[in-house]
Amino acid sequence: MLEIKNLTKKFDNKVVLNGINLNVNKGDVIGIIGPSGCGKSTLLRCINLIEIPTSGEIVLDGDNLVDNKKHNITRRKIGMVFQQFNLFNHLNVLENIILSPVALKLMSKDEAIRRATELLKKIDLEDIMYSYPNRLSGGQKQRVAIIRTLIMNPEIILFDEPTSALDPEMIGEVTNLMRKLRDNGMTMLVVSHEMNFVKSFCNRVIFLSDGIIKEDRSSKELFENPKDDKLKTFLSKIGNY
């Protein structure tokens, strides 16, 4: 469903992505790993065009997103969850969730509130519906951010280090929600440093280094039998992940 062809991205003269080719099938849960600065986050940000690629194609359902000038419309199909949550600080939880569908007239306000309440109930967050972000824990914030993405009914969700900014005891509540999404067949791309999580959560893992994909295999194979030298070094440095 999502096809990335020969994607490159330069910042000034520094090449960050140097020809990425990737096919994402519906229901894929792909982990993206690699040393810091290898372009993992940039790849995600290029996919929903927060960063505009220097060259290459990103084809979603047969549509090349890079050529399409209506980025805001194609972005509705691609959800994104940020490391720093990026909840809107001046709005409460409910308002955060319904802002976009109501502003884009995808649903009525009443319907949006009903949907949001439903989603919050499923993960026992209806108590904090009217709280402002500065009153929430990191785990709560990230789960609200995920629901804010879900209400748009995206075809794919990009996770940019979703648990890196969380205290250890909060990580579980976020990964549990992600597991539920996976089990419901959501297509996901996850950038993460948590190797245990990537290994157990993703069905497919790509190793990114020097701006290209060095390995792209099933999670089990890649971790148990790494081929690329850089991947070997990377895994050994992380050690007993």
């Binding site: 929903n48 927060i50 972005r75 940020f82």
Partner: peptide
């Protein structure tokens, strides 16, 4: 990040400006 979150939700520049950036 506030801009990016707004864009990622499919909002246009003007909507991000009006509903997210200016109020803050």
């Amino acid at each position: 990040g506030q801009w990016e979150a707004g864009y990622a939700l499919g909002l246009k520049y003007s909507q991000v400006m009006k509903k997210i950036i200016l109020p803050q």
